[in-house]
Amino acid sequence: MAVLVLADHDGKHIRKSTLNTVAAAQKIGGEIHVLVAGNGCGDAAKAAAAVAGVAKVLHAEGAQLGDELAENVAALLVALAKGYSHILAPATSSGKNILPRAAALLDCQQISEIISVESPDTFVRPIYAGNALATVKSKDPIKVITVRMTGFDAVASTGGTASIEVVQSPGDSGLSTFVGREVQKSERPELTSARVVVSGGRGMGSGENFKILEPLADKLNAAMGASRAAVDAGFVPNDWQVGQTGKIVAPELYVAIGISGAIQHLAGMKDSRVIVAINKDEEAPIFQVADYGVVGDLFKLVPELVEELKK
């Protein structure tokens, strides 16, 4: 039995989500192989070979693999699937795009966003926006699985000495082409891997007002997030959204400011180690999950908090 993990990488480095996924693979058991597919991703393949617990890296190069197009990467996974009992990918936007396509081609029913491995064929996954947990058993010969990063502690990115094997990939499907990318440039840590997250909600009142959270995020070296209400109101971009329909985060410290605590938001952050809420409404549901709450006007409290942190 061997487990194949589809790596999430930027060509040079392996992203942390890959380390969480390798951790899930370790819980399943068996030899762990990591597939690094891309266009000029030799450095990422080397980085994957150094990841603790990895036995072998499969390195696939090709112009058609450069932009993570689902048609091409899924075809590669299917070509490699023979001999694997499990195929895993992190539940990133890329993993979620590619893996179900591969699963269907293999005639397997994918298991999405697992948070726990009970046995090699039984897994726990959240349903209904995290309001219930389902324990499911797969009868398929190959278990095709996406892994929710917050469910598994990342393995070490060093200490491994895996071999690297070059693998051939099927050619371009000709079905889709990459046009362009608009990446939000930010000096801040990435939302899903940050140690501290500062999020604002509808209570911020406007996009302009999010500026008052910046000194706080600077002071805590935090990523900035938002509730769906704030995104829907157009205050901030969609990729700031924390919640069931956005990013799932589990930082050491989550600071929710002007966020009432709708179920769909809680589903995205309730696994944080420490939650702080600042809200003017003392009945807000966010206080039912917060470790520490302050009731009051955020426009007065946030600057005060920044001053206190400087002391």
Binding site: S94, F178, G180, R181
Partner: peptide, 12 residues
């Protein structure tokens, strides 16, 4: 909508 921003593709 992808992690970190937006991406545009052209599909047949």
């Amino acid at each position: 909508e992808v992690d970190g921003g937006l991406e545009t593709i052209s599909i047949k």
